[in-house]
Amino acid sequence: MLAAHDLGELTPTAELVAGELLANSHCHTKGPYSLRVLSPHPGRLRVAVWDTDPRVPPAFSADVDKDAVPPPDTEGGRGLHLVRACADEVGVSVLRELGASKGGKLLWADCGGGVAW
């Protein structure tokens, strides 16, 4: 699908980012979640996952040490750090209003233009 839009080189990164963001929502939130993929600029791809939990995971908070990695003997906590390492930029939008979005948050990662895989 990405190759049809001249974004085929981003497929491995997009798959990894989508998998980690979806796994995070599946394991750490209750309720529905969904994947959103768009190309905001030529040669770039935004992978985002929405879920109903408005809490921002520590790995996506503004004051996180981007180079910090969980200890090797822990069973979890690496997925979102991996997303940060693979993406050019990451962010979160907390959706406070109920309605069509049902509140929650949108974690996103931009790939392309400098991502080395």
Rank of each mutant, 00 (worst) to 15 (best):
P12R: 14
T13C: 05
E15H: 10
L16V: 15
L16M: 14
L16S: 09
V17Y: 01
V17Q: 05
V17W: 09
V17T: 05
A18R: 13
G19M: 00
G19Y: 06
E20Q: 08
E20L: 13
E20C: 08
L21F: 10
L21I: 02
A23N: 13
N24H: 14
N24G: 04
S25Q: 03
S25P: 09
H26L: 11
C27V: 09
H28E: 00
T29R: 03
K30R: 14
G31T: 06
G31N: 02
P32I: 04
Y33E: 07
S34V: 11
S34G: 15
S34H: 15
S34P: 08
R36E: 06
L38G: 10
L38C: 09
S39H: 07
P40D: 00
P42H: 13
G43I: 08
G43V: 04
G43R: 10
R44A: 04
L45D: 00
L45S: 08
L45C: 00
R46T: 08
V47L: 04
A48V: 06
A48K: 02
V49E: 02
W50C: 01
W50V: 02
W50S: 09
D51F: 01
D51I: 04
T52W: 09
T52A: 15
D53Q: 03
D53S: 09
P54M: 04
P54W: 09
R55M: 04
R55A: 15
R55N: 13
V56S: 02
P57F: 03
P57A: 01
P58Y: 14
A59L: 03
A59W: 02
F60H: 03
F60M: 13
F60A: 05
S61L: 15
S61M: 14
A62C: 02
A62N: 05
A62G: 09
D63A: 15
D63R: 07
V64G: 02
K66E: 10
K66H: 13
D67N: 09
D67T: 12
V69D: 11
V69G: 02
P70D: 07
P70K: 00
P72R: 11
P72A: 04
D73I: 01
T74H: 14
G76R: 11
G76W: 13
G76P: 00
G77W: 01
G79W: 07
H81K: 12
L82Y: 06
L82P: 03
V83L: 10
R84M: 11
R84S: 14
A85F: 11
A85K: 11
A85R: 14
A85V: 08
C86T: 12
C86D: 07
A87W: 06
